[in-house]
């Protein structure tokens, strides 16, 4: 193999299984894994299925596992990978494969529907300070690549999709819950249907987020603390019983 060529082992198959096939791809400066997949499509495997759109790490379409790590293929530069061995490209493990590198991520949209939506306080003035918007703006950076859902061991290893909405949906819930105009309390949902107690904050979601959202520290833990406020704090419980407040 010349220094300007890399070997890619790409998953080919569907829901029932498949195989890893090798392709030799010429390497050029600045090339990313998605470029290599496109080269493979153009030079010998036109039926290779891959979902992509912007090629700028903003649409969240080309999520996959490159050498076992959940990443956006368009953000995985070849010069950051060891090319002395084949580069392994597989579909996201947590979601059912449709074909090759394309997975069915529709469960995420179903999970999103379960979250009680943004509900403004009655009669609220539709105006708020930038300082109050700062926290929730971080969550708006989410590009719905679902890499965090893919790497979360609660979904990936234990397949608790019925009991846990996953980190991406907790980010979404935090975007509503922490919004300065929102008037709804979602702690009951988060504890029961959202399954926030299943998250053991091992931060893999934060590690893979291509938008560098501090998912665990800024979304999940603040929500966990609010759940503690309402369900696990004995003094607060006593205070509510005695005063009937809050």
């Amino acid at each position: 193999m010349s220094a300007t060529e890399a070997v890619f082992r790409v998953f080919r198959g569907g829901r029932e299984g498949g195989e890893m096939r090798e392709y030799r791809v010429p390497v050029s400066p600045g090339m990313v894994v998605l470029d290599a997949v496109h080269w493979i499509q153009a030079h010998g495997a036109p039926d290779l299925a891959v979902r992509w759109n912007c090629k700028a790490a903003k649409c969240g379409s080309c999520s996959a596992e490159v050498n076992g790590k959940p990443r956006l293929m368009c953000k995985s530069r070849l010069d950051s990978l060891p090319l002395d061995r084949p580069v392994v490209v597989r579909p996201m493990k947590t979601f059912p494969v449709i074909k090759d590198l394309v997975t069915d991520v529709s469960w995420n949209f179903e999970a999103a529907k379960r979250i009680p939506p943004f509900t403004p306080r009655p009669g609220v003035e539709w105006k708020y300070d930038q300082a109050d918007a700062d926290r929730v703006q971080e969550f708006r950076k989410c590009i719905e690549c679902f890499l965090c859902q893919n790497v979360c061991h609660v979904l990936r290893e234990h397949d608790k999709k019925g009991a846990f909405v996953g980190p991406a949906m907790l980010v979404r819930a935090a975007g509503y819950e922490l919004h300065p105009l929102d008037g709804l309390t979602r702690t009951g949902f988060l504890r029961e249907q959202g399954g926030i107690g299943l998250c053991n904050i091992t931060k893999c979601c934060t590690e893979v987020c291509p938008e560098s959202i501090r998912i665990t520290d800024n979304a999940i833990i603040p929500l966990k603390e609010r759940v503690v406020d309402d369900f696990y704090d004995p003094l607060r419980w006593l205070w509510r019983k005695v005063t009937g407040k809050g």
Partner: peptide
Amino acid sequence: HPPACGVSEGNRGYRGETAFPLVLQNLHR
């Protein structure tokens, strides 16, 4: 649970912090 990101835990049960004793983590404050 898990040993590292993207590394299999094997076929073991998991309840997270929803049941005793780990539910007591909520008393951190």
